[in-house]
Amino acid sequence: MLRNATRTVRSRSRRTRLGILATSLVMLASVSGCGLLGGESDDSSGGGDGPLEQSKLTVSIMPTIDLAPLHLAMKNGYFKEEGLEIETVSAKSGQASLAKLIGGEVDIAYSSYSPFFLAQSKGAANLKFVADASSAAPNSTLIMAMPDSKVQSVQDLEGKRVGITALGTIIEVLVKSTMQANGVDFNNVEWVEIPFPDTAAALQNDQVDAAFLTEPFITQAEKSVGAVPVADTAKGPTKDFPTAGYGSSADFADKNPETIAAFQRVMQKATNEALADRSKIEPLLVEHSKIDADTASLATLLTFQSALDPQRLQRVPDLLLEFGIIEQAVDASQMIAQPSAD
């Protein structure tokens, strides 16, 4: 059985849902007693164009697969080569990670993109993206069901119980976009909020008819309960859709351009290496994502990213606005920290 915290959320009016999201943002903003980060500096020098304004960076992270390049960079000493020392702080979710940033606990936060854009659109924070992390690759973000489920195709989702981690997330956008592209009314769906680790059991116990999963939970659900793919959400309008990245406060990015540039150089180097040789990151998936070696070898990885493309990133707030998750348009290009010089 799922924990009592698992709750069913039926489709609600746009106004009601936005009110709930706005309340969540107020709670998120209230974590900070001092506002945005101040960007205090250290006297240190790195491998870039000038001395680093700050040599030590604190980064909030989660046990997700797309953080493999960051772990690779730390393991291989790439940050030290640039004069940087990285301290990581664990967060339970993207919203929790962003709360640590707004509260001044960390300098840089890793999260899916939804919390960043939601906070920016509501004025809860003034943020800058410092590096991309991942985008949806084919078969890496799936709607899944049991073989005998009532859901055998996207068209079968209407009127069914669909599991997602939470409303107002990238997951909601991916599922709704996939349904819309296939002519399916997503307003006639019973959304069931379930944490990823509990989703396979929810499918097996018929608590949902279908559910969204990403790796390593796709592979784990296939192995543990025999779940099968229903639809790939990384197709059509959400092909190569940006899923997660790293952000800081705008104040921190503006006051620490050389430090941010050094972080960007390291992440680009590690990302290129991870893309070129998967064998270098599979042991890191076992160590940091807490999965077994077999799952690490079988999992279909998200596409690792590092460079921030404003046109590509704009797809996220545009869809968030289309589906009513944010009320105000956001210009993604204005949220990108100045890239490092070649």
Rank of each mutant, 00 (worst) to 15 (best):
E105H: 10
A119S: 08
A124D: 04
L98C: 09
Q95L: 15
A136L: 15
V106E: 02
Q95V: 12
I102M: 15
A136D: 14
A136K: 13
G83Y: 09
N126G: 02
D107E: 07
S90A: 14
K92E: 06
G94V: 12
K122N: 08
F116K: 14
E82C: 02
N139L: 10
V106K: 04
I102G: 13
G123I: 00
V130K: 00
I86M: 01
S112F: 11
G77I: 04
G77F: 05
K92V: 12
Y113C: 04
E105G: 02
S134W: 12
S97D: 07
N76P: 07
S114Q: 07
G77Y: 04
Y78H: 10
L98R: 08
S97G: 12
M74T: 05
G83E: 08
E81P: 01
F116D: 14
A136T: 13
S90G: 08
I102P: 13
K128W: 05
A91T: 01
N76K: 10
N76A: 05
S140I: 13
S114W: 03
G104W: 05
N76D: 14
S93F: 04
A137N: 08
L101Q: 04
L127K: 07
S114V: 05
V106A: 01
K122Y: 09
K80N: 10
P115K: 15
E85Q: 08
G77T: 03
S93E: 02
L84Q: 06
K80E: 13
A133T: 14
E81C: 02
P138S: 07
F116S: 12
K80V: 04
M74V: 05
A133Q: 12
E82L: 03
S134N: 08
I108F: 05
N126F: 00
A91Y: 02
D132E: 11
Y110V: 09
N126W: 01
F116T: 10
G103T: 08
A136S: 13
A96Y: 07
L127P: 00
F116C: 10
L118K: 15
I86S: 03
S90L: 12
S140G: 14
E81T: 00
S114E: 11
G83S: 01
A99N: 11
K92W: 02
M74I: 03
D132A: 11
Y110D: 09
G77K: 01
P115E: 11
F129H: 09
E81L: 02
S121N: 07
S111V: 06
D107N: 13
S97W: 03
S112P: 03
S90I: 06
A119M: 02
Y110H: 15
S111P: 00
S140Q: 12
E85L: 04
K122C: 03
A96S: 14
L84D: 05
L98Y: 11
S140E: 12
Q120C: 11
E105D: 11
A109C: 01
E81A: 04
P115W: 15
A119F: 00
E87D: 15
F79A: 10
S135R: 15
A124C: 05
E105F: 08
I108W: 01
V106C: 00
A133C: 13
S97Y: 07
G103C: 04
L84N: 07
P138D: 06
K80A: 13
K92R: 14
A137F: 11
A131V: 07
F117D: 05
A96F: 10
F117S: 09
S112Q: 10
S114R: 00
A133H: 14
N126M: 02
K80P: 01
L101R: 03
G94D: 10
A131P: 06
